[in-house]
C-alpha cells in the first residue's frame, strides 16, 4: 500500500507538476470565491478529481496495472494505496484552501465571513471525496476508460446544475434559485456544526466503504 501511495505521488509530481501548480492556483481561486457561493467550492473539488485523473491517465498509458500484478503489493494494496493517495491530495489542498481564505480575508476584511471560512475547506475536501467515493468502484471494476465517461457525465451533471442556478441568478435576482443559494450562505453555520460534522463523517464512511467495495471488485478483474 505504501509503495503504491508513494508511486502515485511520484507520478503526479513527475508528470503533472506544472498542471498541479496551475490547477492548485485556479482551484484556490475557486475555493476562495466559494466563500461567496457553493458553485466555486464544488468546482474546486472537481478540479482536484481531474488532477488525480491526469495521474490515472499515465498509469493507463503505461499498462502499469498489469505490471503491478507481478509486484509484491497485491490488489488490495493497490486499491488502498490509491484511495489513500487521493484523500491525502484532497486534504493537502484543503489546508491550502484554508490558508488562502485566511490570506484573502486578511487583505479584504469586508469579505470576512467565519461561516464561509469553515464551509469552504469542508466543501473542498468533501466534494471530491464524495465524487470519488461514488465513482472509484467503477474505475476498479471496469477500468479507466469507463470511469472517465462516468466522471464526465457526473461533471456535466454538476456543471449543468451550477449553470442552471447561475443562469437564474443573472436573470432574476429574486428567483427561487437565488433565494435558495442566499439562504445556504446566510444560515447560522455554528448551530449547524454538529450536522456538518455528521455529514463529513458520513462522507468519510462512504469513502471507506467505497474502498472496501473497490477492493472486492478489483480482486475479480481479469486482464
Amino acid at each position: 500500500m505504501k509503495g503504491i501511495f508513494l508511486k502515485n505521488w511520484i507520478v503526479m509530481w513527475g508528470g503533472l507538476r506544472f498542471n498541479l501548480v496551475l490547477m492548485t492556483i485556479v482551484g484556490l481561486i475557486f475555493a476562495v470565491v466559494g466563500q461567496m457561493n457553493t458553485f466555486g467550492s464544488i468546482f474546486s473539488g472537481i478540479f482536484l478529481c481531474s488532477m488525480v485523473m491526469g495521474m490515472m491517465e499515465y498509469n493507463e498509458r503505461s499498462k502499469w496495472e498489469l505490471y503491478s500484478d507481478a509486484l509484491p503489493v497485491g490488489r488490495k494494496g493497490t486499491v488502498k494505496g490509491f484511495y489513500l493517495f487521493s484523500i491525502s491530495y484532497f486534504a493537502a489542498f484543503s489546508v491550502l484552501a484554508i490558508l488562502a481564505c485566511v490570506l484573502f480575508t486578511a487583505f479584504m476584511p469586508m469579505y470576512f465571513d467565519p461561516a464561509a471560512l469553515i464551509l469552504t475547506p469542508i466543501m473542498t475536501i468533501f466534494v471530491p471525496t464524495l465524487i470519488f467515493a461514488l465513482t472509484l468502484p467503477v474505475l476498479f471494476k471496469f477500468g479507466y476508460k469507463v470511469f472517465r465517461v462516468i466522471f464526465l457525465v457526473l461533471l456535466g451533471f454538476f456543471g449543468g446544475i451550477g449553470g442552471f442556478f447561475l443562469g437564474f441568478l443573472v436573470d432574476d435576482e429574486h428567483s427561487l434559485a437565488s433565494s435558495v443559494l442566499s439562504q445556504i450562505w446566510s444560515v447560522d453555520i455554528f448551530s449547524l456544526l454538529p450536522w456538518i460534522i455528521a455529514v463529513a463523517a458520513a462522507v468519510l464512511a462512504l469513502y471507506f466503504l467505497s474502498m472496501l467495495l473497490s477492493s472486492k471488485l478489483y480482486k475479480t478483474v481479469e486482464r
Binding site: G15, Y58, K63, A70, L71
Partner: peptide, 13 residues
C-alpha cells in the same frame, strides 16, 4: 518480472 511492454509511466526518470 519483465513484460513485453515496459510498464513505467512516461513521466518518470
Amino acid at each position: 518480472v519483465v513484460l513485453d511492454e515496459p510498464c513505467f509511466p512516461e513521466c518518470v526518470r
